[in-house]
Design a protein around this nucleic acid. Sequence first.
DNA 1: GAAGTAATAAAACGAACGTTCAATTAATTC
DNA 2: GAATTAATTGAACGTTCGTTTTATTACTTC
Lengths: 216, 216
Amino acid sequence: MARTTGSDGEKTEAAVREAAVSLIARFGYEAMSMRQLAAEVGVQAAALYRYFPTKEDLLFTLMREHMEGLNEAWIAARPDAADPATRLAAYVENHIAFHIERRPSTHVSNMELRSLSHDRLTQILRMRTAYEKELRAILRDGAEVGAFSIEDIGLTAMALIQMMTGVIVWFRPGERLSMAEVTATYLSMTMRLVGAKIETYSAARPFGRAKDAVAF
Amino acid sequence: MARTTGSDGEKTEAAVREAAVSLIARFGYEAMSMRQLAAEVGVQAAALYRYFPTKEDLLFTLMREHMEGLNEAWIAARPDAADPATRLAAYVENHIAFHIERRPSTHVSNMELRSLSHDRLTQILRMRTAYEKELRAILRDGAEVGAFSIEDIGLTAMALIQMMTGVIVWFRPGERLSMAEVTATYLSMTMRLVGAKIETYSAARPFGRAKDAVAF
DNA sequence: GAAGTAATAAAACGAACGTTCAATTAATTC
DNA sequence: GAATTAATTGAACGTTCGTTTTATTACTTC
């Protein structure tokens, strides 16, 4: 046997990426074998090496594209001229939406960092730092103009990101809460956490508030 | 060769546990080989099987003991008759202290769940749920008596736990912030997050407040 | 000091791993 | 329709994996 009828390099590569994200998210990078991945795609293991020279190259590609997507999504959503509270609300909304939409990919990028070589780990961490820096800038601006009340910028930024990213651990679409409700509640918690003074960000929010919501 | 001079089963087993926690936290369960673990202990791989029948048994033992320790630490620290804010403060302090003290062990318990069999995963998740239930009870009590202002008990509990556990990702003893400062800031963020009305919990706090702290 | 037990080493097992190579067929180009 | 390129298979390579077996030595008991 050899080339199969209807085979297409682009489609196969896309199928490999998709299957790899799913398998690594479920079983872990080390636990996923190239043969298992190939079987999921419907191909022999050797065929994978036409698209990715090594297993680690595959992992790195998935992670890099995830981080690029996150940064690009934020740049597209970022309201540059707005007040700190509005910018913070946009950051929270973008972060939660992106992570819920790409849960498997987020799992891969958060859990498999230790399987990267030193150089590639550095590259991914640089992209992550750039993204977090955007949040710190918002918090700093807000603290300076008195819109927020924050003890420690860096610590608050980390706490917020951990809190928001944690959504993917328990959130399942179609369960008790909708994504809009979850986002509204996280927005409310975020604003209280940073000691936001007034609800100046409300106008920018595309989501309705949960039924039992209270003012923060 | 065979039994070595000075060999002691109890000491070897303890050394195996300690080395396993360290190696799994650093490289991951799948990436750690039994030979690598044995070398770290200074023993041949076959010797490990005197203490743990399989690799997965070893992982499960580490996780179970970690979760038992977490629940026991909370039971010992829990102030039963206090008001919700004081109880919440105790929960936060215990959680952060425990996780900073046992960072490698926490990494293992949080990251390697997918390597457990279904039954054992269920056992560990049951213990985790019991621990989280304690937090939800505090939040519910506080909301009922009006000490807290919370939109969604379950969601707030998850957000708080994710936020607090995230400490182990970036905190390093001896760096910019001391553990007492970090704990004080997290306490402050927690109280604002749950909309605590007054600082009734202050008396129970063993830590000084950070220099640039502001009232929540 | 002999007998019994505890703790290990050394070697081997089959299976699975990531990866490579040569052969083969499908699609495209001229 | 011949030549070329794209896509894949099937088989194999050497290595490493978790685990088992057997033998050997250290310690304990009497």
